[in-house]
Each structure stands twice: as structure tokens, then as C-alpha cells.
Amino acid sequence: MIRVLAVVLLALAGAVPAGALEPGERLADPALEARAREIGKTLRCLVCQNQSIDDSDADLARDLRAVVRERLSAGETDRQVVAYVRDRYGDFVLLKPPFQPSTYALWAAPVVLFGLAALTVVVVLRRRRGAADVARLSAEEEARLARLLDDGRR
């Protein structure tokens, strides 16, 4: 039983998610293939739009995977390969938006929103503490309250 379990676990450990990649597409050189996989994960398939070319079965994704591999095999750097695709399909082909003037708002938004939320919390808490001070009873009121409670107890 334990032996079976061990075999199953080992098999699972060796199973790398293969995406939509077909065996024939793979490069013989494992280092180059690994780079191609990393690049493929960062490029959007424009046909399905929320899948990377590594995940997509679309024709265009397969063609782009082939282009990536050809260019890597020709000795290009990862950056050059991505630039080649980006020059043709634009920034939208990058799954991670680049940091540039047109995306400053996009990148800054989470920080700004979090800052605003934190500020709101601080202001509200401060105010609430202030409100509690105001609500405290005066000495006169305390005395009256004590009298009322006493009356009730009798």
C-alpha cells in the first residue's frame, strides 16, 4: 500500500503542467525550452484574451509559441523575443502591464486606494473617540442617575 502511494506521489511530483503545448513543439534543448515556457506564460493569446499563449489551444497561440522557439533557437535574448511580439501586437499582448506613463494610474491605484482607506479608518476612529468624550455624563447628571437608581432599588 505504502509502496503504491509512493509511486503515485512520485509520479505526481514529476508531472509538470504542460499547458496547451504539444510534444512536437518542444525544443530539444531543455534550457531553451524552459526559457520558451517562461516567455509563453507572459504573453497573452489575443484570441482568448485571458489565457497565455502557453495555455491556449488557439491557432494563433500555437504559431506564437513556434515564433518564440524559433527566435530563441536563433540566439535572441528573452527580451528581444518579447519585444518582437510586442512590436506587432502592442502592450495588450503582455499579461503583466509595463510600468510606463500610460499605466502610472493603473499601478498607483491600489496604493492610493489603500492609502485612502487607511486614512478613512484613522479619521473615523479619531472622531469616534472624540464623540465618546462628549457623551460622558457631567457630575450633576451622575448624581441624578444615582438618585434614580436608588429610587428604583427601594
Binding site: 489575443l46 484570441v47 491557432d59 494563433l60 504559431d63 506587432r88 501586437y89
Partner: peptide, 12 residues
């Protein structure tokens, strides 16, 4: 091969 289409940024 569809490479000219890629050069032109064709996706559909």
C-alpha cells in the same frame, strides 16, 4: 505559414 499575418499583428 501565417508569419506575414503575425508581422501585421493579425489575430482574428
Amino acid at each position: 505559414q501565417g508569419r506575414a499575418a503575425i508581422d501585421w499583428g493579425v489575430y482574428g
